[in-house]
C-alpha cells in the first residue's frame, strides 16, 4: 500500500486529473498555458505529453471563451476540466458561470447535465496584488447550481478533485496558491471524498473554529498555542463550501457552545456571515457567545508584502478571536 507516500498539493491535483483522464476518455482539460507549459503553477504539468493536444488544450486568453467551451462540451456529453489561472478572472467569465453553467440543467427542465469542473487558484500571500490575490468564493456559493470546493491538504485535494470530475453538475475547485507546495500523505490509487462532507481536523471541547483553505493551518497553529493554556479548539474544515456540511458544524457548536469562523476573504458578506447565521438558527440556545468571525478587512488585497501580511488573517488573530469568545471575568472580580 501507499500509506507513507507524500505528495505536494499541486501534484495531488495533477494526479487526480491524470487518473480521471486515464479512466474516462470523455475527460479533457482546457486553459491558458496548461499544455506545453503545464500551467502557471505547474498544475497540469506533463499532462499534454501524456494525453496529447486534443485532451489537454491550450486556449486563447479569454476566460469567457474558456468557460463557454466547457459549458458546451459538458452539455454535449464530454466531462471537461477548464482552468482559470486566477480566481480573480472568474469575474470575466461570470456570464458563462452564473447564467449558463449554473442554470442550464434548470432551464432544460433537468434534461441537460453539466459535468463541468472549473479549476482556479485563489487566495493571497504571494504579493500578487489586488487583481491576483482575491478570495471570491462567497460570490460563487451564492449561485444555486454551482458546487464549490476548497481543499486544505494534498489528501483532500486529490479526493475532492476526483469527486468534482465525477460530479454531474458544475463544480468550482479552488486551489490555494500558498498551499500548492504543501506536502502530505496521498494514496496512489484513485479515491474520491464525497462533496458536502466536512472534516474534523482537530477535536476539542471548548470552542469550534470553522476554517477552510489555508486558514485551516493558521487555525491549527493557533489551536496548538491555545492548548498550552488549556483551551481545546475543535477545528472543522468544511472542505466543500457549497453544499455546506451544516450538520457537522452545528453538532460541534452545540457541544462547545462557542464558534469562530475564519476565512481569508473579506469579512463583510463573507461565507462566515452565512455560517454564523446558520449556527444561530440551529443552535441558538447552545451559544454562550456571539459567533465570532475572522476575515480580511474591507479593502483590496495590498501588494506590499508587509501590508499583505497584516491584511491576511494570521494565527495570532485567530488566537485573539478564540480568547474573546472564551472571555470570562475572574469570579468575584
Amino acid at each position: 500500500m501507499s500509506e507513507e507516500r507524500k505528495l505536494a498539493y499541486v501534484m495531488a491535483f495533477n494526479e487526480a486529473v491524470s487518473q480521471a483522464m486515464e479512466a474516462d476518455p470523455d475527460v479533457f482539460c482546457a486553459g491558458e498555458d496548461i499544455g506545453a507549459f503545464g500551467g502557471v503553477f505547474g498544475t497540469f504539468g506533463g499532462l499534454q505529453a501524456k494525453f496529447g493536444t486534443d485532451r489537454v488544450v491550450d486556449t486563447p486568453i479569454s476566460e469567457q471563451a474558456i468557460v463557454g467551451l466547457g459549458v458546451g462540451a459538458a452539455a454535449t456529453g464530454l466531462r471537461p476540466i477548464v482552468d482559470l489561472m486566477f480566481m480573480d478572472f472568474i469575474c470575466v467569465a461570470m456570464d458563462q458561470i452564473v447564467n449558463q453553467a449554473a442554470k442550464l440543467k434548470y432551464m432544460f427542465g433537468g434534461e441537460a447535465t453539466l459535468p463541468l469542473t472549473i479549476t482556479t487558484a485563489g487566495g493571497g500571500g504571494l504579493s500578487a496584488a489586488a487583481q491576483h490575490s482575491q478570495s471570491l468564493e462567497a460570490i460563487l456559493c451564492h449561485i444555486p447550481g454551482l458546487k464549490v470546493v476548497y481543499p486544505s491538504t494534498p489528501y483532500d485535494m486529490k479526493g475532492l478533485m476526483m469527486a468534482c470530475i465525477q460530479e454531474d453538475n458544475p463544480t468550482v475547485m479552488v486551489k490555494h496558491k500558498r498551499l500548492l507546495g504543501m506536502s502530505g500523505h496521498v494514496p496512489v490509487e484513485p479515491y474520491s471524498i464525497p462533496l458536502g462532507t466536512a472534516n474534523v481536523v482537530r477535536p476539542g471541547r471548548d470552542v469550534t473554529i470553522v476554517a477552510y483553505g489555508r486558514m485551516v493551518h493558521e487555525s491549527v497553529a493557533a489551536a496548538e498555542k491555545l492548548a498550552a493554556d488549556g483551551i481545546e479548539c475543535e477545528i472543522i474544515d468544511p472542505r466543500t463550501l457549497q453544499p455546506l456540511d451544516t450538520d457537522t458544524i452545528v453538532a460541534s457548536a452545540r457541544r462547545t457552545n462557542r464558534v469562530l469562523v475564519v476565512h481569508e476573504a473579506v469579512r463583510f458578506g463573507g461565507l462566515g456571515a452565512e455560517i454564523a447565521a446558520q449556527i444561530q438558527e440551529a443552535a441558538f440556545d447552545h451559544l454562550d457567545a456571539p459567533v465570532g468571525r475572522i476575515g480580511a478587512p474591507f479593502s483590496p488585497v495590498p501588494f506590499s508584502p508587509a501590508l499583505e501580511q497584516h491584511y491576511i488573517p494570521s494565527s495570532a488573530a485567530i488566537e485573539a478571536g478564540v480568547r474573546e469568545a472564551m472571555f470570562r471575568n475572574k469570579v468575584g472580580a
Binding site: 457552545n257 454562550d288 457567545a289 472571555f327 470570562r328 471575568n329 475572574k330
Partner: peptide
C-alpha cells in the same frame, strides 16, 4: 453571577 463580557451569564456560571 455572570462572568462573561459585560457581566453576561454564560453556561459555566450556571453550572458553577
Amino acid at each position: 453571577v455572570g462572568t462573561g463580557p459585560g457581566g453576561r451569564i454564560v453556561s459555566e456560571d450556571v453550572e458553577e
